[in-house]
Design a protein around this nucleic acid. Structure first.
Lengths: 274, 274
DNA sequence: CGCCCAGTTGAATTGGCTCAATAGTCGTGG
DNA sequence: CCACGACTATTGAGCCAATTCAACTGGGCG
């Protein structure tokens, strides 16, 4: 319940609060509390009213939607990420359920306090705008991937994205269960297996959660990653030295316990549509 | 080029500017200009830097994404809607192309001025937040529909949504070409035809662009619309008397030339992810 | 009158899903 | 320490849905 100074620092490092003055930061985090949840805990059900902004500090969280007994994973978040900011700002019901995939440490910030602060302080408001805009663009990327690519292509691009996140090694470790990955990519677990099998023709070897790439060129030729769909690598020219924006996308930055000030500190934020 | 007072009023009626003081409104719209485009004009290509916020005053605009010679329609906007607000706020490149489907009147607002205003005035900033949050949630709904429903179900729900927008008549008129609708719903034109054919079992009759519903109950039982995916009808309890939010979704409100102050004035705004 | 294009229809193919069975893994408890 | 049960992952077979290719229809416009 009491928040450790180290955790406070991690929160301050979030894009949302990075530029905030001490007073604004105090206002926005008033009444905040920290909580630990075991794996598999449902934090929020689809349709619930949303009273808090959640900040994932450790562990991982799955966001999912459902309809007619079907479920689909819309995103898997890793620390440090915020989620359901949009619902908080609109005082609306949640559109997705949230549940922990691992034991997780989660900070809960009062929605009321955040809305009040955003209404009063234009700088903080602008940080919220950027966070939301980034989230929005993340989902747009997701829709594009879903509608424009086939299952194997989505998997190939996912692997390349993970590869880019994991120091571009020739060998990566899948950060989630394959069943979760399958749902995230919009296919069944069986189909994911077959998709992996198809990728063996492109030098992708699977050993449990360890994936190795033996012909990265061939894989890239198949995947054809695009800066307008995938969030990684080439990244066309940004206007200014915009630091961290546009995060969300299918999976968020990892964050052990150490300190990588520049590359860490990403969000689960997502952007609006048009 | 000079903006007519009637147009100015329509812009003021947008959620984005509704609460703005005269001074703030003047700042935000400084350097704005109005332009007419014929049908089929590309306003913006995927990947282009974005310098303006666009406001569609009449006509209609299609937002589309592409990859590997494939294209897909992500949204069709109708007046009055704003678009690419997220890219404007982040000074980022466009993730979608925008082209007119009909001759259109479009207002272009300086991105620079909007960012400056949002940074200086917390109330305007909050309006941007709400717009972005609504857009975000709109795309989330789109992803859910795409991943959780089959083609026929998406069509059925689309028809019900249109029906709700068109005074719940038993007969509606499709607002776009069927080829555009097919792409919007994530299928091929051929498949859309077959989906319509399947719906004839549920009392849906097609005569060109005119669709009539003879057994609305049966159609609803098939479609199973949800307040957490579709934007229309039942709409669970909102906390306060929140006016217009969460617009975007696949297609925006229509707006002839008359005046329906409460139901009109919708956005092309979309919300962020978490 | 005839062209062009949107829309529809049909047949063949592909891809994804469902169902079912098997193999490996982990954790629990005897 | 090992045996068991629960669960994840994989693989095969059959099925349903969607895409592709192709031909045909009908309406609008020159």
């Amino acid at each position: 319940m009491p928040i450790r100074p180290a955790d406070l620092d991690r929160i301050r490092a979030l894009p949302l609060f990075m530029g905030a003055s001490p007073a604004v930061f105090r206002d926005a985090t008033a009444g905040a509390f920290l909580q630990r949840f075991p794996a598999g805990t449902t934090l929020l059900m689809e349709g619930d009213p949303v009273d808090f902004l959640y900040v994932l500090l450790s562990g991982s969280v799955e966001l999912q939607g459902s309809w007619k007994e079907k479920e689909s994973t819309l995103a898997v978040l890793r620390p440090v990420s915020t989620f359901i900011l949009a619902a908080v700002m609109l005082e609306a019901q949640a559109l997705m359920s949230a549940r922990t995939l691992e034991p997780s440490q989660i900070l809960m910030l009062s929605g009321e306090a955040l809305r009040r602060t955003a209404r009063q302080d234009a700088d903080f408001g602008f940080a919220v705008i950027q966070e939301l805009a980034g989230c929005y663009r993340g989902v747009v990327r997701t829709v594009k991937a879903q509608k424009l690519r086939g299952g194997v292509e989505r998997l190939a691009n996912y692997l390349l994205a993970q590869c880019a996140r994991q120091q571009n090694e020739a060998r990566i470790i899948l950060p989630h269960e394959k069943r979760v990955l399958a749902s995230l990519l919009g296919m069944t677990p069986e189909n994911l297996s077959r998709a992996f099998a198809q990728l063996s023709d492109y030098g992708v070897h699977v050993r449990g959660a360890q994936i190795s790439f033996e012909r990265p060129r061939a894989l890239k030729r198949l995947a054809r990653p695009s800066a307008l769909i995938d969030n990684h690598a080439p990244a066309a020219l940004h206007p200014a030295g915009k630091a961290a924006s546009e995060t969300w996308s299918t999976d968020t930055e990892e964050e052990g316990g150490g300190a990588q000030p520049p590359k860490a500190a990403r969000f689960g934020v997502s952007p609006k549509f048009p």
